[in-house]
């Protein structure tokens, strides 16, 4: 088994902090999906990220507010999963709710140490 990171980009409601029923439903969908992965022993870690953030850039270390990318490049969260290979990991990603919100999942293998 190898480890893959699924990076969630774009979408619009998954990062909502509003307590609306719609937002709660979205959270529920995510929870259900992750619960399913956890039960199968696929899930190895992950977090959602807050929308606000800061950036540090270049050798002058210029700090600016806000995440850089906007819209469909914006990273909303990530999961680490155990998968046989990259195709297996892509297969796992197919259940991700972000795909219903026009977002995308980037699948990357974690480099093994050494």
């Amino acid at each position: 088994m190898k480890k893959f990171v699924l990076v969630f980009r774009g979408g619009d409601t998954h990062i909502s902090t509003a307590h609306s029923q719609a937002a709660m439903d979205v959270i529920q969908t995510w929870n259900n999906w992750m619960q399913g992965l956890a039960e199968k022993g696929i899930l190895a870690g992950g977090d959602a990220l807050q929308v606000s953030g800061k950036n540090v850039k270049g050798s002058k270390k210029v700090v600016s507010d806000g995440p850089y990318a906007v819209g469909n490049e914006m990273v909303g969260g990530y999961l680490i999963v155990n998968a046989k290979d990259i195709n297996d990991a892509v297969e796992i990603s197919k259940g991700c709710p972000i795909l219903n919100e026009e977002g995308s999942v980037e699948v990357r293998q974690v480099q093994e140490r050494n």
Binding site: D47, Q50, S52, G53, N55, V56, V75
Partner: peptide, 11 residues
Amino acid sequence: GHVEVRSIIAM
């Protein structure tokens, strides 16, 4: 390159 720093929402 640059570093983006984001606070984590615990699941």
